[in-house]
């Protein structure tokens, strides 16, 4: 398989579903992808499906609503929760009174249990509606945490089996068409270079292949850059050469910090190698940010890092025709 990528290919599909285990930075990376696309002039909609506040926090904005708000130049965001989507679905079918009744009688849970996946399908159905309307160049969905991503994306197939007729089935079929068309939908997997998240990423990627859903790339977050290795004695010697006074405690701290970051870097490389072995996909690393609290400055730093990673990847990729001529290395 030839791995190709450039910035435009990254956003080839209009719907981009960002998936990852809790704690790997999925929401931050969704925001990074949105900012990156917007900076190339695209109109981007970020969709939150869990009613979480991470996306709006990242941009220092108020909690998201069902109506889209502007988060930054070219970046819009809204949430689409299952409850809202279910009620809207009945409304769209001129069954406003049913929708009110479901709500007033607390029957939404009963319905969602009776037809598992219906909530997911209605959320994805709403995404499909937005996609079809063409208001945005790119729709980035911050998907439910990893275990649930597969249930989420598999809901259409499940419901097509369970519900034989009617508007829900039609909706499920339309969603299934959108998800399995690589020109319309791709999944971006996010992970950390650690054993458990890597295992989960590989499992998710394989399951997505079975579901015939395109995986565009894997983003590896929290990458530590190595530091030159040096013993305390070497550091003391360097201090002498540089003509500086250095307390022993400081030389020790410099050596410890260097040895620690290199230890983590080695562990991360092992996990990256596992990913590369198991997945024939573009794998891009994003740096661990020491300084930022992941507000807007953090997003901007990561956006630049991702653009660089994509450019470097192209240079390094086993291109079929042109050998890399600009001499750039990783």
């Amino acid at each position: 398989m030839r791995l190709v990528m450039d910035l435009s290919a990254f956003f080839e599909s209009r719907v981009c579903i960002v998936s990852g285990k809790g704690g790997v930075g999925k929401t931050t990376l969704s925001a990074v992808l949105a900012v990156m696309a917007a900076s190339s002039g695209q109109q981007v909609l970020l969709v939150d499906v869990e009613g979480k506040s991470g996306l709006s926090n990242a941009f220092g904005a108020n909690p998201l609503e069902y109506e889209a708000v502007t988060l930054s130049q070219g970046v819009f965001a809204r949430n689409i929760t299952a409850e809202q989507a279910l009620l809207e679905f009945f409304q769209d079918h001129n069954l406003n009174w049913v929708s009110k009744r479901l709500q007033s009688m607390n029957l939404v849970d009963v319905i969602a249990t009776a037809a598992p996946g219906i909530k997911d399908i209605l959320v994805l159905g709403k995404v499909k509606q937005i996609e079809r309307r063409g208001t945005y160049d790119l729709i980035i969905v911050d998907a439910p945490a990893a275990g649930h991503t597969l249930t989420f994306l598999n809901s259409a197939a499940g419901l097509i089996d369970a519900v034989r007729v009617g508007p829900v089935r039609t909706q499920a079929r339309d969603v299934q068409e959108m998800l399995t068309d690589p020109s319309r939908t791709q999944v971006i997997l996010t992970t950390l270079p650690e054993e458990t998240p890597v295992n989960e990423t590989v499992e998710t990627a394989e399951a997505l292949v079975d579901l015939k859903i395109k995986v565009g790339a894997v983003l590896v977050n929290g990458w530590y850059s190595p530091c030159p290795a040096a013993t305390v004695d070497e550091i003391r010697a360097a201090a002498v050469t540089a003509g500086t006074v250095m307390p022993d405690e400081e030389a020790q701290a410099l050596a410890d910090a260097s040895s620690f970051v290199n230890m983590r870097h080695r562990l991360q490389q092992t996990q990256l190698a596992r990913l590369e072995d198991m997945l024939a996909l573009p794998i891009l690393q994003l740096p661990f940010l020491f300084t930022a609290d992941l507000g807007r400055p953090g997003i901007d730093t990561l956006t630049k890092a991702l653009e660089t990673a994509i450019t470097d990847f192209e240079t390094e990729a086993p291109a079929v025709t042109l050998p890399s001529s600009d001499g750039k290395t990783a």
């Binding site: 070497e234 550091i235 360097a238 201090a239 050469t241 540089a242 500086t244 701290a253 910090a257």
Partner: peptide, 14 residues
């Protein structure tokens, strides 16, 4: 020199 290069990186990391 090599010493200052090394120290620059080590201090930045710490």
């Amino acid at each position: 020199n090599e010493a200052t290069t090394l120290l620059a990186e080590l201090y930045a990391n710490l």
